[in-house]
């Protein structure tokens, strides 16, 4: 099964660079984008137009921005952790280095907290690391290998 990524990001430039970094690294995991917190929840819960899991597979990895319109990133995280039937890796990808944000994210069950790099080279490095660790090597309890 190919592992897919759900990127929850409202900044279209950041989405663009992320996509580009994937392309540049030759990572072929399907990428789906939710541009706000509500959309992310709809996607994860299979609501409104996301019910077809062939087209919108449940992701192996959620990359979650914190500053999002409508439903904030931390609220998305909280809700995701309440959905007990599927476990999913949630990695925070935020420009905030605020200690309270970081502490709150881990308290709510984030698997990792990554700071958005300031430039494209940095982003490429980070995406490579994310891919290697979370998609290649990391095992989650939903899958038995």
């Amino acid at each position: 099964m190919t592992k897919s990524i759900l990127l929850v990001e409202d900044d279209e430039n950041d989405v663009f660079f992320f996509t580009r970094a994937l392309t540049k690294l030759g990572i072929e995991s399907p990428l789906h984008v939710a541009s706000d917190g509500q959309q992310a929840l709809d996607y994860l819960e299979g609501h409104e137009g996301y019910s077809n899991r062939n087209e919108f597979p449940f992701p192996s990895l959620v990359l979650l921005d914190l500053k999002l319109p409508h439903v904030k990133g931390l609220d998305v995280l909280k809700r995701v952790r309440e959905l007990t039937e599927r476990s999913v890796v949630v990695v925070i990808l935020s420009s905030s280095k605020d200690p309270t944000d970081i502490a709150e994210a881990y308290r709510l069950g984030a698997n990792a907290y990554l700071s958005k790099p300031g430039n494209f080279e940095g982003l490429v490095e980070l995406v490579r690391a994310i891919n290697d660790f979370w998609l290649k090597h990391n095992l989650t309890k939903a899958e038995k290998s």
Partner: peptide, 14 residues
């Protein structure tokens, strides 16, 4: 302000 700046730098780089 850092988000649009990242975009400027990123596109300039591309």
């Amino acid at each position: 302000m850092r988000a649009p700046l990242r975009a400027m730098q990123g596109f300039a780089h591309i």
